[in-house]
Nucleic acid binder design. Sequence first.
DNA 1: GTATATTTTAAATGCTTGTTTAAATTTATC
DNA 2: GATAAATTTAAACAAGCATTTAAAATATAC
Lengths: 203, 203
Amino acid sequence: MKCVTEKSEDKIREAAKRVFLKKGFDGTTSRDIAKEADMNIALTNYYFRSKEKLFLEIFKDVLEEYFQSMLTILNKDIDIKAKISELIDNDFEMMKKEPDLVIFIMNEIHKSPQRLFPDMSVFRQVRETYLKTQLEEGVANGTLRPMRLENILPLIKCGVEFIFMGKEIHKELFMMNDEDFGKYAEEQKEHIKAMVCNYLVIG
Amino acid sequence: MKCVTEKSEDKIREAAKRVFLKKGFDGTTSRDIAKEADMNIALTNYYFRSKEKLFLEIFKDVLEEYFQSMLTILNKDIDIKAKISELIDNDFEMMKKEPDLVIFIMNEIHKSPQRLFPDMSVFRQVRETYLKTQLEEGVANGTLRPMRLENILPLIKCGVEFIFMGKEIHKELFMMNDEDFGKYAEEQKEHIKAMVCNYLVIG
DNA sequence: GTATATTTTAAATGCTTGTTTAAATTTATC
DNA sequence: GATAAATTTAAACAAGCATTTAAAATATAC
């Protein structure tokens, strides 16, 4: 018989993801998670053994979520300019949908990198995409500026992610409200696309 | 008589800055700070009333430290390309000297923006620099692409700050050790300079 | 329907947290 | 050098923390 009510384990997992993303590992208590999941406090340890174990499980998911949609685009068989444009659009939508995700990942890894890299096979996948081949071919036949994947990928990602990670400071610094910021981010996105493409593609 | 030993208040302030930068507000305990300063636990509250008050004082300093050297360059009477180059070099040196500073600022503001913007007069200063005039003149006479300060400034800052904030993830992703990363960051810095200048300056 | 396994609960565990106290010590004032 | 003020100390505070317990409630198996 199919059950309509969600399994407790999943309820906790989803609640924990929400709270961890918002408050970070240090800022989150087991009671916060239990309250968000509307469950008894003892259940987090019943299902996940400890706050640390629960966090590591969720962090792994979050990191894969971050890379997954990007991976699909990196492997598409499309022109490199279109690919850059699509990668930036994809990043932009992700930052709008999950505004806490990137700063959360960056901050947690920065505070304790060693504990957070288990068997990240997704890293290898990112290193071996079709974009890499495209790049090497373009560089070889002189249509692209000599760059490696590790040079171009951060240039594609940093523009959009930076202004969203620092959304509140940008709003304060340039005296914008949320509506202003939305328009500003859109125009900034187009600048980034043009700037990166102009730089990578010769002529 | 000049005293060689540092005043206790300053010892605590400096210790607190070190610990807060490394562990963030939530990850830092009053005992951490007292230990780092090698002082009795009660002294943090004797001099600063609370952990929160001490943090706010330090955060204000840190934010001004972040903007101060940048402000000087923004107001220099030099060619706009040289200015961009110098801003990026300056950012680069700051990230090497204080690797925790930017991710700390970003994360703390992201978690609770309202509590961290008191009388930030430095924001007004950033808005009204000579670069703004240079930009408007260049755009008016057609030598520069039509952009405002809020468009160009993040483009200048995001490249370097992004790879340093995500140093550990970049090392893991692209299989670099610390030495590799150092070289990589230098070459990335030059790409960023060229890319931003090429984009802003027409022809 | 009873026995067994699973899930949920309230309560308590011992430890750490930020902060306070009141006494002890050092420094400054005359 | 005595008196007052400022600083430092060890100890304690209540509240909150992650985690555990053992009993209660529910679901599953026969």
